[in-house]
Computed example of a mutant assay.
Amino acid sequence: MRNQQAGSTQKGYRRIIPSMTALLQFESVARLNSFTLAAKELGVTQAAVSKQIKVLEENIGVQLFQRLHRSIYLTEGGETLFAIISESLQKIASGFDQITQGSDKRELVLGSTATFSHCRIMPRLASLSETLPHIRLRLATQMFTGNLRTPDFDLDVRFGNGEWDDGHALLLFEEEVFPVCSPAWLARNPIPLSLDELAGAGLLDADATSEGWVTWQSWFKDEGVNLAGLKYNLRCSLYTDAVQAALNGYGVALGWGRMVEHFIDAGTLVRLEPFVVRPKDAYYLVVPHGHCVNPDVLAIAQWLQVKTQAVQVQEIAE
């Protein structure tokens, strides 16, 4: 009886659902926003992909793509179909992953920059199994925000204005930037009481990135002063190196509040008052189009927002 019901359902699906090949090719074109890239991903010709999409549009009687001279974009019907197919394929992929890995946990790919991963995610890993016991996290860490716009992530963290055309953005938190140093450095040096004194205090700088992060020069400019004679003890390509140098008592670094709060809570870094700059941009959790803002996504967002308990962290993971 069960086989008869399955066969009947299967025939019913075949009458309703067009070619699965066409649906898979449509998903690839919509995700990559390109017939050429989809053909390359699928290992077929562009003409074959175009033919499948045309047949699919004829079968359902709806135009799925608006075709321009050098670009394409989804129509309203295309957006609806893409959301349905992407969610369904995600569930199927998760099911295969559970079966092949022999685990009842679902893998979730979270993209972020190296700084966010090291300074915000790593200190929270201990609480992940309590927050999301059914999720196995895979971190896809990139150097800069510009690398994050990839279809391979389930979620990614970005710093910006929250307006991206490839997904829905959930606000995580706003930021503030202020000077930080170690207690050891503070014991050897006078507390800077003015911006002029701070400028000569032995600064630890990191290069500006596509993430919109500031250098000491731009930080002082935001404070309303242009100081040419900044005294640097060390300049780094990576922000995590500047923070590590501050932890080792080598000078004063710019502390991005949400990135260094666990160091401050643990007492390994000290915030120098009252200096502070509050950027206009903020951190967001971006859910790519075709993925649902479900309870797991909201739980991940909350997990990233909550402060960690103070622990004695002596260094940043490499």
Results as ranks from 00 to 15, higher is better:
162 G>V: 02
285 L>I: 01
139 L>K: 06
109 V>Y: 10
26 F>N: 00
235 R>V: 08
232 Y>V: 08
225 V>R: 13
310 A>K: 15
175 E>D: 08
112 S>H: 05
52 Q>L: 03
255 G>W: 03
202 G>F: 06
47 A>S: 11
140 A>Y: 11
274 P>H: 14
84 I>G: 00
214 V>A: 03
67 R>H: 06
44 V>E: 01
26 F>D: 00
168 H>M: 08
17 I>W: 02
65 F>S: 01
277 V>C: 09
62 V>E: 11
27 E>F: 13
87 E>C: 04
175 E>N: 05
117 S>M: 13
274 P>S: 09
68 L>H: 15
233 N>I: 05
54 K>Y: 07
301 A>I: 04
181 C>I: 15
18 P>L: 03
35 F>H: 00
34 S>N: 04
215 T>A: 06
8 S>F: 06
208 A>Y: 01
3 N>T: 02
29 V>E: 00
227 L>A: 07
304 L>E: 01
241 D>P: 02
190 P>T: 15
281 D>G: 07
203 L>N: 12
223 E>V: 06
278 R>Q: 12
267 G>K: 14
298 L>V: 10
82 F>S: 04
280 K>M: 11
194 S>M: 15
291 H>P: 01
100 T>V: 13
74 L>P: 05
231 K>Q: 11
194 S>W: 14
82 F>D: 06
166 D>W: 07
44 V>T: 14
274 P>A: 13
14 R>P: 00
127 S>H: 12
218 S>N: 08
207 D>V: 08
133 P>N: 05
314 Q>H: 12
166 D>Y: 04
149 R>M: 03
179 P>Y: 08
279 P>L: 11
13 Y>M: 09
91 K>L: 09
41 E>Y: 04
278 R>E: 10
49 V>Q: 01
305 Q>A: 12
127 S>Y: 03
184 A>F: 05
1 M>S: 07
10 Q>R: 10
160 G>P: 02
278 R>K: 15
49 V>L: 03
